[in-house]
Write a protein that binds this DNA or RNA. Structure first.
Lengths: 148, 148
DNA sequence: TATTGTTATACTCTATAACTATA
DNA sequence: TATAGTTATAGAGTATAACAATA
């Protein structure tokens, strides 16, 4: 007679989609995206804005093109993103070599980047809080193999 | 002296975003979404089309509204999706009670739903193939808690 | 009164093509 | 010749509001 731990249902009863890793990943990601977007809206930032500002703070003189490659955002779509952050006085031009324009955070940008990281950390801490540090590290490394 | 398993880098050296579960989930999900979209394009289907067709096959006489609630798709946006599948002869009206319209697959729709599941299974099997069956089950259940 | 299906519409994100300037 | 930044634009996908018909 088959034994099953409590809380686990009969595998044959589980609907198809529930067993799809891709589907579960998609739904989980969409939910977290929405939550984070709501949280960052308090800082008047979209997720792309916040991520870019953080990266410029972390890596001064990075260019639009490099940021786009890192984040999977097309060069053309980086322009209004960078322009928006510039208009708000959060970033400015750093080292430029004529065609490449290094970007740096302003003092206001750095302060906001700190707030962004704080919010992202706080949000992330609420995700799967039952994971141990080891389990968390393992999951992170597994996920990164999917897209890298 | 701190000991570290080979292949693991100094935690303090890992960039901020790489340690964010939300970010990793987002990137992984986007990659898988793109791969699956490419695969389903062979059947001339988008992911939403395929998912809906599968669900109607699995649950005959389900309505647009119910499908929308299950998948996080607004009622208004379900209309063109259902219309498209109907025009292609993949689904048709089943039980209707006046305002609710149950949807069912046609024979062609059922055959395509089988192909969809085959493609989804095949794609999913390529995701984190190093996971054991137990690890896979655990991950699935953890992910589902995020969005349910 | 609440829900279903529906239409119209706006908004965001993303993709493509083309152009200029520079390495 | 390849790359960075830029512009304009088209296409998805998604969101809101409103309406008619029905439970």
């Amino acid at each position: 007679m088959p034994v099953r731990a409590k809380g686990e249902s009969d595998p044959d009863t589980v609907p198809f989609l529930e067993r799809q890793l891709g589907y579960q990943l998609r739904r989980a990601s969409a939910t977290l995206l929405g939550e984070l977007a709501q949280s960052l809206a308090e800082l008047d930032l979209r997720i792309a804005d916040a991520t870019i500002l953080h990266l410029i703070d972390e890596q001064p003189d990075i260019t639009q093109s490099t940021l786009g490659r890192m984040l999977g955002i097309k060069r053309a779509n980086m322009v209004p993103l960078a322009a928006g952050l510039t208009e708000r006085g959060l970033i400015e031009l750093g080292l430029t070599d004529g065609r490449s324009q290094g970007l740096r955070v302003t003092p206001a940008g750095r302060a906001l980047a700190d707030q962004i990281r704080a919010q992202m950390r706080a949000h992330d801490a609420g995700v799967l809080p039952e994971l141990s540090a080891d389990e968390r590290r393992l999951l992170l490394s597994r996920l990164s193999t999917i897209w890298k």
